[in-house]
């Protein structure tokens, strides 16, 4: 009995180490010289070059890009929760002609690889005159077919009697959505919010394509610009990436329970 528990703990500890190893490696690399970072066979020992961290702030407008990333992530998360829950409520409860058909078209969006949207989206943004701006980062991420689908399934699981009771009391659909559905759907909304946050924070390609000015870029795109064609200073890049992932790690530590529930609930991590 005791021995098997020890075994379980050893196994779990090994598993945990395996999961944390890339972060430890990243941290150690961020403190190495370029030579030691690319050496074969690799060495573990860092050179304690803390100046790699200082260098990030000279190379890219880190503070401004951090702010852009926070604004983009926050606005997208709030927007998706709001708009997706509205659409999801309509698809789950309201009866209107062509509902199934429209929902089918909606779902078909999920079948298309997202890369295909890049060029048309770019053209739309270009014609709106929004290239190289904060709205260009935010607006295309405000809506999501996946979020709508997720919340619709959630709403379908709620008892219809609640709606009916509210309607008898004279509540209009907007009121029912706001006062009845949203409070009940909290776990689903939190899950969607968390997924959107992770996805937006990591979103790389769209911010890179649509914005040119370093002051208008997000951290993911800004860090990518540290890669040269023929030469990359990996220790500095690692230092920057580590700084960029700290906020997500902090959010995770604070909201660990919701994270795990949310991911278990949706069965995906985005």
């Amino acid at each position: 009995m005791r021995r098997s528990r020890v075994l379980v703990h050893v196994l779990l500890a090994l598993g945990a180490l395996g999961m944390v190893a890339p972060f430890i490696w990243q941290f150690l690399t961020s403190l190495k010289t370029l030579h030691h970072a690319t050496q074969v066979p690799p060495t573990l020992a860092p050179d304690w070059r803390w100046q790699n961290y200082a260098q990030i702030f000279d190379l890219i407008p880190f503070g401004q890009q951090f702010l852009n990333t926070v604004l983009m992530t926050g606005a997208r998360a709030i927007g998706q929760v709001l708009f997706c829950s509205m659409a999801a409520y309509a698809f789950a409860r309201l009866r209107f002609p062509g509902r199934t058909f429209i929902f089918g078209i909606f779902l078909s969006v999920l079948m298309v690889p997202p890369q295909l949207f890049i060029i048309p989206q770019y053209e739309i943004i270009a014609r709106l005159g929004w290239l190289n701006s904060l709205p260009a980062l935010i607006v295309p991420g405000l809506f999501s077919a996946f979020g709508t689908f997720l919340l619709r399934q959630f709403f379908l699981g709620l008892p219809v009697e609640l709606d009916e009771a509210a309607r008898l009391d004279g509540a209009n659909p907007l009121r029912i959505w706001w006062s009845i559905m949203l409070p009940l759907a909290r776990p689903g909304l939190v899950a969607l919010g968390i997924l959107t946050t992770i996805w937006s924070w990591n979103d790389f390609f769209w911010p890179l394509v649509v914005n040119n000015d370093p002051e208008k870029m997000t951290l993911s795109a800004g860090l990518a610009s540290l890669q040269g064609q023929f030469m990359t200073d990996y220790p500095v890049l690692m230092a920057g990436s580590l700084l960029a992932s700290l906020p997500v790690i902090a959010v995770f530590v604070v909201m660990q329970r919701q994270f795990v529930q949310g991911i278990a609930f949706t069965g995906t991590k985005g």
Partner: peptide, 19 residues
């Protein structure tokens, strides 16, 4: 500046979008 890895993809989007 657009990093090499993504320069051409971005250029294609921009060229197609007339920008």
């Amino acid at each position: 500046l657009t990093p090499w890895e993504t320069y051409w993809t971005k250029m294609k989007a921009a060229a197609t979008g007339g920008a």
